[in-house]
Nucleic acid binder design. Structure first.
Lengths: 143, 143
DNA sequence: GACTTTTCCAGGAATGGTTATTGATCGGGG
DNA sequence: CCCCGATCAATAACCATTCCTGGAAAAGTC
């Protein structure tokens, strides 16, 4: 099971007021097939294979709707376009600065840190994101 | 004292091999006067006041040189241009998503987290950055 | 100091990711 | 079957940033 159950999709669309159009469905499906962390451009190319009529702008808009209603999450690394992930469970990914590969890092919990942050600022904290970069094994050995 | 001693500046330039040109000096000075976290554009405008001939591209290049040799550090938040900070001690800042204000958060230490990350990935970890966003008190009350 | 080599800079054009605009199209309620 | 708002495709615009060029300044060399 790839995380997002069909009923969950319908439910979230219903509650949000957005309609579940074929384009949004296509974007979601494309994201499922990737399993990686594609950029908007890559999602666009994948969707285009099945339906050559979709425009890049539509994909961007669909992605932002899907993010807004909590079906996908967007990840930003410093020197790279935004990448999208179906996995909406809290987790952290590391990105290879050389080849761009993304891999999940298990066992990292921001809970305590979040408490510390909240306790030390008068701001209302809405986001604490850990951006992790490194070099993957194969790039390291390829040098 | 604003953190960066004159001798430190000279020393870091000497060791890096870059020359301490008047433009780079001007960018550094502008950054000192800000005390906040200006974007490249804002630095450019400040520098331009004293020397109208500098080009935006020059400011970008100067900033990247200054960052490379460790005199300033660059901070990235999700929906905002890169911002620069003279404070090169490890510390964390929170940014108001409404007005853009940046404020330091004391007492946050990524040491343990870094260990956990390293222990749980085959990647060679080069960067772990905490991106914190929220709403500042005045924006919150202004609603 | 004159010459050479290197680095740097101003100005402007180009790039890349993303967003805004616009007129057409779709789908559901009446 | 028509109206209305939501959605869409296509494309232009945007913005931060980088690249390119010829020329100027600085650093080494004799």
């Amino acid at each position: 099971m790839i995380g997002v159950a069909e009923r969950d999709v319908r439910e979230k669309f219903r509650r949000s007021g957005y309609t579940l159009t074929s384009q949004r469905r296509a974007v979601l499906d494309a994201l499922k097939e990737f399993k990686g962390h594609p950029s908007a451009e890559e999602v666009y190319l994948a969707v285009k294979k099945k339906n050559p009529k979709v425009a890049l702008g539509t994909v961007y808009q669909a992605l932002s709707v899907l993010e807004e209603i909590g079906l996908i999450c967007a990840k930003r690394w410093s020197e790279s376009p935004v990448r999208y992930d179906l996995n909406i469970e809290p987790h952290h990914d590391i990105r290879c600065t050389s080849c761009g590969a993304v891999e999940e890092i298990p066992g990292v919990d921001l809970g305590d840190l979040y408490e510390t942050v909240r306790a030390n600022t008068p701001f209302e904290v809405t986001e604490t994101t850990l951006v992790i970069e490194g070099v993957c094994p194969s790039c390291r050995s390829a040098n």
